[in-house]
Design a protein around this nucleic acid. Structure first.
Lengths: 226, 226
DNA sequence: TCTCGTACACGCGGATACTTATATCCCCGA
DNA sequence: TCGGGGATATAAGTATCCGCGTGTACGAGA
């Protein structure tokens, strides 16, 4: 739920936010695997801060759905079973298709050019860690003109929740190629101001991602919910 | 974002959660008006707890969008301008219509009877404070069979965010009558397993609520964002 | 008199040390 | 072998402290 209108107003960054950012990245990158116990004292020592901001950060991440906290049992990196992945993708499809539908008529040529540049960057990028961020940037750039900040916030939150898994997808060269082809189709439909077409391409794109992930996780024996 | 699968697993309630619950109710009921400063040590003294759980509670409420926190300036009861109300209702429409669409074919007769009982309770209820809760219970009871916990969680979160304003609506006798009529239409469509009809009634219902609220707030001079 | 700068008070973020409660594990005895 | 009880680990909560950014009020200078 982070990021409703962030960046618009300058807020001094708190330690808790910095910690949350670092941990979010660590979880997304797989450094912290699903199910890992996140001990407050341990983290406090590692980061060199006291327990207080660490708790704030954990609460924050819990709200984002990538950490689960049980009173007396503590915080763990949230796992995802394939059912939950399917749920997240179903919600993403709902939210993002709506945002795209609203956004397409309002998209400026400049924004579209920006989106295309992001696609070129993805093709050029060799660092696995950056793909996730670029992928997200591309998607969000198409939705920005939707005019509903809250909707964008939710979409961003769900990108966060799915980030770890998107990275798994993107590390697969085959999927990445297909994904990029779909991205270019999507962009083309947007350039033609064909909202219906764009939405249907996006819907297909997300379903493919979801299916690929669910198969990978059900078959591949990835670490499960704690 | 609270309440994804709450209640299914017994978690000992933390002080922070209790505090959050009390404050959520206080904000929804209007006891705490929009813009009110929420000073940590003041609250700590009032509740008789230390600052730590109060901070946790404030973070929680911030994630729910009903409190805004600025480092160094502290927490305030979040206001809503009419634009934000429109946004929330647009998202609610999207989420709830989808949940209903998925849910209708799976709704058991028992669930429908329960929903009808809730409607009867609303008619009988004289206490303004309870209407909001009953109204929410009715809506959620129709969505429960949608099979997507995450979607239900988001819907609940948006009910929380809109709660204060729904209560304003419901304290208006005229709106309440119309609303109840629409609720019965909605229920009837569900009984007929007519998903399309049900969704269209729901959509109309939510749009009416949104419009009524936006007009009330733009005209009525309600307290604004801090 | 009006404006600008400074100084002070307030309240938050954070640190630290300590207490309490709870879950888990392991061992010991029936 | 199994079940109960204690030891241990860890989270939740308490009490207090400090530093710093912000807002404000007051006094000095134009």
């Amino acid at each position: 739920m982070r990021g409703f209108a962030e960046g618009l107003i300058d807020r001094p960054q708190t330690v808790a936010e910095q910690v949350a950012n670092v941990m979010r990245e660590a979880i997304a990158s797989g450094t912290l695997k699903a199910g890992t116990a996140l001990r407050q004292d341990e983290l406090a020592e590692q980061f060199g801060f006291s327990r207080m901001p660490i708790r704030d950060a954990l609460r924050q991440l819990e709200a984002e759905g990538i950490v689960s906290i049980h009173p007396t049992k503590g915080a763990h990196v949230a796992g995802m079973d394939s059912a939950e992945i399917a749920e997240i993708y179903a919600v993403r499809e709902l939210l993002e298709c709506e945002a795209l539908r609203l956004s397409v008529p309002a998209l400026s040529g400049g924004k579209l050019d920006e989106a295309e540049q992001v696609l070129d960057q993805i093709d050029a990028e060799r660092n696995v860690g950056r793909w996730g961020a670029l992928n997200r940037a591309f998607h969000l750039s198409l939705y920005h003109a939707c005019g509903n900040q809250r909707l964008l916030g939710l979409i961003e939150a769900h990108h966060n929740a799915a980030d770890r898994y998107v990275r798994i997808l993107l590390s697969n060269l085959d999927y990445r190629k297909r994904s990029q082809a779909e991205h270019r189709d999507l962009l083309a439909a947007c350039r033609q101001r064909d909202g219906k077409k764009a939405v249907s391409v996006l819907r297909q794109h997300l379903r493919e991602g979801s299916d690929t992930l669910v198969n990978a996780i059900e078959g591949g024996g990835l670490s499960r919910k704690s």
